[in-house]
Amino acid sequence: MLVECENLSVILRRRKILKNISLSVNSGEIVTIIGPNGSGKSTLFKSIIGAVPCTSGVIKKKSGLRIGYVPQKLHIDEALPITVKRFMNLPSGHSHLAIKEALENAGASGLETEQLMELSGGQFQRVLLARALLGRPDLLLLDEATQGLDHRGSAEFYRQISRVRDKLGCGIVMISHELHVVMRQTDRVICLNGNICCQGKPETVSGSPEYYALFGLDRDNESAIYLHRNHNQIQRAQEMTHAG
């Protein structure tokens, strides 16, 4: 067991973001978290890395757990000049060889001397992944790591993640919107909407009524990821139940 949450609840600005979350992640396992916007996916990650305090419940971590984290957004200010190599050496230095290897593992070879600001979206995500890999993490947290990548790019990115798992044997938790793309590379899916709606093998989850309800999917129209209209209606209905 790498990390285990027991009845984790988080209240931020008097809003209950996470309710009674219990989950655990083992090494060598790829877990995907899906859920609509505002369902607390990023908050869950932030409470695991300690950026957001738990209101109740506990998070147990394996002692000496090394976490590699790839954030959802990383804005590099134009005023800050920094090369990929320098970025990889933050906060502590690594050998030239280790950096080269990490970039290779993330599929971003040869970018060492590039300015971080000038990378394309895909290159930037890979560099973030490479930096997360450098610390030889036991647990890798990827928050919508394929943001800004096209379908082919994100499919390739997920294959890369799967190769990383095979090579390093770390546990991987990723947040994603694209269950259909992630499915093949995932061992377990957790459907999050404040609480855990359903979890299990990807095939099980994608066929479950909770999943359909959460994403407003039509059983006949499986190709749609989710329909915004229905999704909003669900949220409104939920808000009403909370208010009442």
């Binding site: 300690g50 950026a51 984290y69 954030p71 990383l74 970025f87």
Partner: peptide, 10 residues
Amino acid sequence: TLNPDLALAS
């Protein structure tokens, strides 16, 4: 400065 959450994770 680059990202507070990256710092926390390290």
